[in-house]
Structures are given as structure tokens and as C-alpha cells.
Amino acid sequence: MSAAPAADRRRAELEVRALRKEFPVGGGLITRERVHAVDDVSFTLKPGRVTALVGESGSGKSTVAKLLLRLYEPTGGSVLLDGQDIAGDRGRKSALEYRSRVQMIFQDPFDSLNPVKTVRHHLARPLAIHGIVPRGKIDERVNELLDTVGLVPPEKIAAKYPHELSGGQRQRVSIARALAVEPAVLIADEPTSMLDVSIRIGILNLIVDLKEQHGLAFLYVTHDLASARYVADDVLVMYAGQIVEQGPIDEVLERPQHPYTRLLLSAVPDPSLAAEARVELGAGQESAAVDPREGCRFLARCPIAVDVCSHVTPELVLDGFGRGARCHVTAPSPRSREETNGRPDQ
């Protein structure tokens, strides 16, 4: 890079507290049902660490990503960048400032690029909007960015249109675009799920490099536990809008506490895993997030549910190492124990 990045600016903590987002079901003006897409989600993204947000479709993970990017406004809870609550920032100037520090890489490598614009346009626009470099230096910086993400020769790539690039190349352009504003936090929403298998590792390695060399804070949103393990330091497992388990990733994968985490682990294709070791699956879907009542949302699919699970929502209590699970049975919180003990067994 021609200018040394301001060390302070590029390292920041993004904290999320009790984040909530509800959508009306059906999308009309007059509707009663609301889906709690994100409910009581809290975590912190730290510089130089990758946090994986793992969940299936309907879990709310993409909504969390969009909330962090301010593409949606939260229904409740707060997002703090370096301790400052961003909800207060209404003006264009502060919104722009936020956007220069938190960026996103999208899932669909083709859809995230405007088909009628060149690669150069995609990278030049953020540079121009945020005034990263003087106008005359834009082309030079575009080439540098392409170089950083491994797209060479940069001059030739810059002139191409998205459809002239392969999926992996397009994704690298997306990453370059996100890096253009010199952000502190990068949110990657399933960046490799639409890429060929052999290309994925390249993108994942790039993410690890960026984390290590530039001290970026990453949120890696995925449904693939294996790739999460490859890049991430910490993991958050989401189900029906809530975090059901979190902690250092090796810990969670070796000793999963929540039944859903165990389910996910057993579902991953792994040739060395014998068929018997797989957990039996119950039926049921993510309708648990629509107008949820009190009680555990995983109840319908849970093999170890007990009585208290049906009328008391389990809490997520973290220990000193940031480890915890939202389950009355495997990780009962003090309140769970109260509820359980207070009732006669039925």
C-alpha cells in the first residue's frame, strides 16, 4: 500500500448487545404475526480474530450480518463500534464514517457485482466516495487492491466485466472492494458456498491472511462447520434467531453442549465417520421463530428435552472464557435450575 494505514483506524471492536430484529409476516400493512428473525444476540468482534456465525437457513445469521452493516435497523438492542452506540448516528456523515469501517463480502459472487460495470468501477466508487486517495491516484490504488487479493495482472482484470471472470475471481473482486475503504471489521456472508470446492480454500486462506496481516476483525457467516473451523477462532451457533451455543471453536466442536450443535456436527459429510455415530434426526422446521412463545425453540427437534423446556426459555450464560450454551439440560443457568427445582416432576 502506498500510504501506511492509520493503525488506530484499522483496528476496532464491534460489540453487539441483545440485538433484536422482527419482521412482519406476509409483508402487508396490517398483519399480526411477526417473525423474530434475530432475538437477544450478543457478541463482540475483536481485531485479529475471526468469529464464525454458524446456522442454517432461517436461523437469522444473514439478518445479523445485514444489521451490522446497517442495511436494516434493529428492532431492539444495540450495536457499538469502539464503545460508541451507532444507533445515535443518523446523519449522512456518520453513516459514511461507519461504512468506511465496517464492510461486507456477499455470498453470490455474480450477483454482488453490477453486471453492466467494470471491475475498475466497483473498486473506484468506494475510493471516491470516501476520499481514500486523491482522484488522480485512483487507478493506481485499484491496481494495488487487485494485487492484494491475488488478481493479476491488475490492469487487465480492472477492465473486465463480471461475466468475464470466474466465480473465484469475482469473489476476490468483492473482497478487494470491501478492502478499498480500509475497514476495521469485515463481515463475510457465506463467501465460499457458491464457489467450486478447489477454489474455496484460496478464499479462506486469503481471509486468514487478512486477519493476521492487517488485524481485521472478521465475522464469518456460514452453514458449513468445517470451513468455520478452518478460519475461525470463535464460533456462535444460531438457531431460530437465537444463539444457542458459543465459545472458542475447537472447544465447541470437541465438546458440543447444545443438542443442535451436536446435530450439525453429525450431519456434516465425513467419510471417516461411521453411520452409527450419527445422531437421529427429528422432523420440524424454522417456524419456531414466528411469534415464539415461552420455552425453548429447539423443542420440536430435541432428543433430550425435559418438562421445563416447554415453558421456560433457556438463557445463554457465558463463563469466563466466553463459553456457554442455551439449554436447560446440558448447560442449565441458575434460573433454569430454579424453575426445574421449583416444580414437581410430572
Binding site: 470446492v197 478447489s198 477454489i199 474455496r200 480454500i201 484460496g202 479462506l204 486462506n205 486468514v208 462447520l225 468445517a226 470451513s227 473451523r229 478452518y230 475447537d250 466442536l253 456436527l265 456434516v268 465425513d270
Partner: peptide, 16 residues
């Protein structure tokens, strides 16, 4: 190209 779920975490090369 398939990162393992168990075992040591090594850097994989993929296919350039």
C-alpha cells in the same frame, strides 16, 4: 480441499 472437522488445523493448499 475439504477442511477436516477433527485433527490438527493445518493450512491447506487447494488447487491454484
Amino acid at each position: 480441499s475439504f477442511p477436516p472437522l477433527t485433527g490438527p488445523r493445518l493450512k491447506l493448499a487447494g488447487i491454484p
